[in-house]
Every structure is written in structure tokens, then in C-alpha cells.
């Protein structure tokens, strides 16, 4: 449907830009939304598991920790473009296609989970370990300890991490756009970059900056709202 709007060999007239850019923005939001839902649902438990398998954790186990940690590191060390290309067979197996939003969601989720697992692990590490002892001494089960003495105390930090992660996923969605996933990135690449359409390029930049700023501002506000001592000052 985007292609239908494109007269070959010409720049898009300015009045037509919104009709081109806004549906693309919608695609980006859907893609990033689905990915972040998966990333949070998987990354929080995974981060908590990695944190507690690590030395000093609640169920410290050296071998499973190393395996998980290495897996996450591999996921983190591949540039997204390469990760995306290298797992095409896997993506096709799951979604039955290797283009479009569905196909982009798979590699984005994998990269996002690896990223977010580390963020959650890091957030949990910043919670005073003495609270775990407080919870234990108060009769908490392992799950109760993780919920109250680790995750709950780390909520502001995890929200900060979700903000960073969401912005990274917006960036990845632009890269995924190059394999025809649609979204703002796709528009920016096909019109702005390949056809030197400056107007479209500027429009996508403005939208991306606005989107990232909105995510950042919302994230910062939520961090403040969930941090009792920060709440006092505002």
C-alpha cells in the first residue's frame, strides 16, 4: 500500500508526506510494541534467573550460569543486521515468512531479550543484598524474595532499562525496515536514502526524534513516580 503512493522517479509532494509517514509510524509502533511485550515478559524472569544463578545469588549454580550468561553475551555481541540475517531460517520456521512485521519481530525480540536480560540483571545487582536477608529472616520463600526484595525494589531502575530498551528497539525497527519490515525505517531508507527525497528524510527524522523523546520523557516520569524519594521533590 505504501508502494502505491510512490510515483517512480519523483519526490513525494509535501502534502502527501503525512499519508506516507503516519501509517509507517503506526507500523513502527506495532512492531516495537509487540517486541517490547515479548522482551519484558521473557527478559524479567530471565534476568532474575541469571542474577540468582550468579555467585552470591539465591540459587547459585556455576555451570548453568555460565551457559546462560554466554548465550546472552553472544546475543548481545552480534550487530543487529548480522543477527537478523543469520537467523532467517529460524524466523521463517516460526512465522512462515522472512519479510514484514512478523518476520522483524523474531530477530528484534531475540536481540531485545539479550539486551534486556543484562539490564534486569544489572538493576537487580544495584538493590542492597541485605534486603534478601531481611526477606529470608522474615520467612519469605524464594519466589517471594525475588518478587519483593529484588524486583520490586528495582522497579525504577528496570523502568529506566525499559526506556533504553524501547529506544534501542525503535532503532532496530529501522534496521529491520531494510528487509521490508515496513515502518518509519523502511520509509527513511527507501525514500530518503535511496531516492534522495530530502522532504521525506526530514519528516522521518522529525518523527523519530519526537518518538524517542516521547519515550524518554514518559520513561523518566515513570521512574520518578516509582521512586519515593524522587517523588517528594516534584
Amino acid at each position: 500500500m505504501i508502494a502505491a503512493l510512490v510515483p517512480s522517479n519523483a519526490t513525494v509532494p509535501i502534502p502527501d508526506i503525512p499519508a506516507l509517514v503516519f501509517p509507517a509510524l503506526g507500523d513502527t509502533l506495532i512492531m516495537v510494541g509487540i517486541v517490547m511485550a515479548i522482551v519484558i515478559a521473557v527478559g524479567i524472569p530471565l534476568g532474575a534467573i541469571v542474577h540468582n544463578l550468579a555467585p552470591g545469588g539465591l540459587f547459585e549454580r556455576a555451570v548453568p550460569y555460565s551457559i546462560l550468561s554466554w548465550t546472552v553475551s553472544i546475543g548481545r555481541s552480534l550487530p543487529f543486521l548480522i543477527l537478523m540475517a543469520s537467523i532467517v531460517p529460524f524466523t521463517r520456521l516460526i512465522t512462515g515468512t522472512n519479510i514484514g512485521i512478523a518476520a522483524a519481530v523474531v530477530p528484534m525480540s531475540i536481540a531485545g531479550i539479550a539486551f534486556f536480560t543484562r539490564i534486569v540483571e544489572n538493576s537487580l545487582r544495584s538493590v542492597p543484598p541485605s534486603l534478601v536477608n531481611v526477606a529470608k529472616a522474615s520467612g519469605a520463600s524464594t519466589l517471594q524474595i525475588i518478587r519483593t526484595a529484588q524486583l520490586s525494589e528495582a522497579v525504577p531502575s528496570i523502568i529506566g532499562g525499559i526506556t533504553i530498551n524501547t529506544i534501542a528497539m525503535i532503532e532496530y525497527s529501522a534496521i529491520a525496515g531494510t528487509i521490508g519490515a515496513g515502518g518509519i525505517g523502511y520509509v527513511a531508507v527507501t525514500y530518503g536514502y535511496q531516492r534522495f527525497d530530502h522532504n521525506v528524510m526530514i519528516a522521518t527524522i522529525v518523527i523519530l526524534v519526537a518518538l524517542v523523546s516521547a519515550v524518554q520523557i514518559t520513561g523518566d516520569r515513570l521512574v520518578r513516580l516509582t521512586t519515593p524519594h524522587a517523588r517528594d521533590r516534584h
Partner: peptide
Amino acid sequence: LRVARRSIGTIFQADGLFSR
């Protein structure tokens, strides 16, 4: 042990409260 711990109350050093 988890049950038994309930018969012992512990007061920790100053950083023992949950900040949130």
C-alpha cells in the same frame, strides 16, 4: 527452616528497610 525462622525476629542494621 523457613517456618522456624518465624520464631526468631531479627532487627537489622540501619539499611534493612525496603525503600519503596
